[in-house]
């Protein structure tokens, strides 16, 4: 490095500032989650007191564990179903040239990006007609709107990049497309499937608008709705301690996952788009 001393210092100061801004809010949430009583209402940057009370309060509330279970169930089923449908569909989109492929791809991208509010009333009607209102399946169904196009899109870009030679060899051997997908491509696709699934899972886990609209009773809520509706005895009395405790609890697994799959996630996010 041939940078001069002051410039190096300025650079590291810049890096430090970026890290500080990125991390501080979450640090502050963690700190608040360990404070109780009046300590919570004294703004301070370093912890003054320590207690697990907020976490205990969360677990004694009936709703929290239930809503985590709801969220896990809904997100897993949604993502599983989306991946199942997406693997074969994206094989067709990535490896076979047929009329209307470009248009279909653009439509899929369009669906993954259009505003959820635009389908809200129609979806509400559909869910009621199917008798799914206030049931987890209502959310599984509605989350498919964004998980399915997303997984198809990302898997298509992954599959497009797989070398042709592998597939050609299989075709010469007389393999059908189904065999090519399950025997030849699947082993190569595992990393892509994990990444795509993870991103779709996070999307379903975090979704708020549909979850808020299509559930009514406390025991059907997902985590985001439970956090949003967590309130105290009165309107003015917001239970900040427990709210921060829940926030920390549901965020830590996400941060761990993102950290573990960091590189793959970036590849998944940039798939297609930037390569253009």
């Amino acid at each position: 490095m041939n940078r001069s001393m002051p410039r190096t210092i300025a650079f590291y100061a810049c890096v430090l500032l970026i890290v500080l801004i990125a991390v501080f809010p979450f640090y502050y949430a963690i700190m608040t989650s360990f404070e109780t009583g009046t300590a919570i209402f004294r703004p301070n940057i370093l912890p003054e007191s320590f207690s697990w009370d907020n976490y205990k309060a969360i677990f004694t509330r009936r709703g929290f564990v239930r809503s985590v279970a709801n969220s896990v169930f809904i997100a897993s089923i949604t993502v599983g179903a989306a991946l199942l449908l997406a693997v074969t569909a994206s094989y067709a989109l990535a490896r076979v040239s047929f009329r209307g492929r470009g248009l279909l791809l653009m439509t899929i991208l369009g669906v993954s990006m259009f505003p959820q509010i635009a389908v809200l009333s129609g979806l509400y009607e559909l869910i009621n007609l199917l008798g799914l209102y206030n049931k987890p399946w209502a959310l599984v169904l509605s989350y498919t709107i964004f998980t399915l196009p997303f997984t198809v899109w990302v898997l298509t870009t992954f599959m497009r990049d797989l070398p042709m030679e592998i597939e050609e060899a299989a075709i010469v051997d007389g393999a059908t497309p189904w065999v090519i997908i399950t025997r030849v491509f699947m082993p190569l696709l595992w990393p892509a499937l994990v990444t795509t699934g993870l991103l779709a899972f996070i999307g379903a886990w975090n979704e708020f608008l549909f979850a808020l609209t299509f559930t009514i009773s406390a025991d059907q809520r997902t985590v985001p709705v439970a956090i949003a509706l967590l309130s105290g005895a009165s309107q003015q009395e917001i239970p900040w301690g427990p709210i921060m405790a829940v926030s920390v609890l549901v965020t830590i697994p996400l941060i761990v996952l993102v950290r573990v799959f960091q590189r793959k996630i970036v590849a998944g996010l940039t798939a297609g788009g930037v390569k253009g």
């Binding site: 990125a22 979450f26 985001p224 709705v225 949003a228 549901v250 965020t251 996400l254 993102v258 960091q262």
Partner: peptide
């Protein structure tokens, strides 16, 4: 810097 992105919007 990935932390803010990983945190759910509601949170």
């Amino acid at each position: 810097i990935l932390i803010p992105w990983a945190i759910p919007t509601v949170v």
